[in-house]
């Protein structure tokens, strides 16, 4: 029988309460009774399970448990008045416990050791796993099982949230890619080119710009049909990409019109050479719909360094004007743009 001090009389004895060891074990499955001599005289079933294999009855309390948070004092005796305590099993797996110790008294009012009620605290999940505890290990008043439920529910919902976030991020990346891609050729589209031009002009990165228009493409479409036309466009796109580098941008901006941004290439001579190579490559026969197709291309080009403050729309329209000069002079030609004097810091070379 154990007899706790009556409420309001921490240090003294008085009218007490008798409770049987079995009832105490059901009420507090993690309790410990320590006698006046510091020896364990009773323990709840869950605590016995946690101390699996360690003989408890009659053992010294401080031989089984270490008080945490005593620092250099190194004293593992329970505080005289009891109070909040933090314990750790001395033996592996050194399970941590926390709880409350209250002083006990004999019927005659003599101090008679302690009643200690314990809990696993925040390490509940690990302790339950380590000691293979079941629902029955906890009193119905203990929220331990609800805490485990909540922890498990939380991680299930969190996992679903993470999966949802991954799917949304992928969908967003794909939507962005589609929004910037020409579906037929896989090249950049007009919007992507606008973004690239904007970035280069804002960042002051020099570039050359070409407006490419396919010649004879209409005949392919008219004589061999749209499927063949599409195949020719896809192949022309592939060849354009083949003649550009990683940092360049190639966009399809109309039915058979393309714009090419050549990063860092600004010399008219270099741009003209590149334009001639592209035309020559596009003039090589293309196999489509079992037929050999022949097309060519006209190009107008300009360079960002010709402008004091390059503006994308201005460069595009100058390249476009140059393209129509090429067309007027007959197909398969490349023409350098001549920006209006007001726009040019110096006269463009011929």
């Amino acid at each position: 029988m154990t007899r706790p001090a009556p409420a309001g009389q921490r240090g003294g004895a008085g009218a007490g309460l008798l409770i049987g060891a079995e009832a105490l074990a059901r009420l507090m499955p993690l309790h410990l009774v320590v006698d006046a001599g510091g020896r364990i005289s009773g323990a709840g079933p869950t605590l016995r399970r946690v101390c699996d294999g360690i003989p408890l009855d009659g053992a010294r309390f401080d031989a089984v448990f270490r008080l945490r948070g005593t620092g250099d004092r190194g004293d593992d005796a329970l505080p005289a008045d009891g109070g909040r305590i933090r314990l750790q099993l001395r033996h592996p797996p050194a399970t941590a416990l926390r709880g409350l110790a209250v002083a006990l008294y004999t019927a005659a009012g003599q101090p008679d050791g302690y009643l200690v009620n314990l809990s696993f605290g925040i390490d509940l999940r690990e302790a339950v796993q380590r000691h293979a505890l079941s629902e029955c290990a906890f009193a119905p008043t203990d929220l331990a099982v609800e805490l485990l439920f909540l922890d498990e529910a939380r991680s299930a919902v969190m996992a679903e949230h993470n999966r949802l976030n991954t799917r949304l991020a992928e969908a967003r990346a794909e939507a962005e890619r589609l929004a910037l891609t020409d579906a037929l050729t896989g090249l950049a589209n007009r919007r992507a080119m606008d973004i690239a031009l904007d970035g280069h002009t804002r960042g002051g990165q020099p570039f050359g710009l070409m407006h490419v228009d396919l010649d004879l493409f209409k005949q392919v479409n008219d004589t061999l049909g749209h499927a063949a036309g599409d195949a020719v466009l896809a192949e022309a796109a592939r060849r354009l990409r083949e003649h550009t580098r990683r940092g360049d941008v190639v966009a399809r901006v109309g039915g058979d019109e393309f714009v090419v941004l050549l990063a860092g290439v600004t010399a008219p001579r270099a741009l003209a050479a590149a334009a001639r190579r592209i035309i020559a490559r596009l003039e090589q026969p293309i196999e489509a719909a079992g037929q050999t197709c022949r097309i060519s291309a006209s190009i107008g080009f300009t360079s960002s360094v010709l402008y004091g403050r390059p503006r994308p729309d201005r460069l595009l329209s100058d390249a476009d004007d140059a393209l129509y000069n090429s067309k007027r002079r007959g197909r398969g030609r490349a023409t350098f743009a001549r920006p209006a004097p007001s726009a040019a810091p110096h006269a463009p070379p011929d």
């Binding site: 690990e126 485990l148 991680s155």
Partner: peptide
């Protein structure tokens, strides 16, 4: 039924 299931993602 083990009270503490597999840690991490129980799904």
């Amino acid at each position: 039924f083990a009270l503490a299931g597999p840690s991490g993602d129980p799904a």
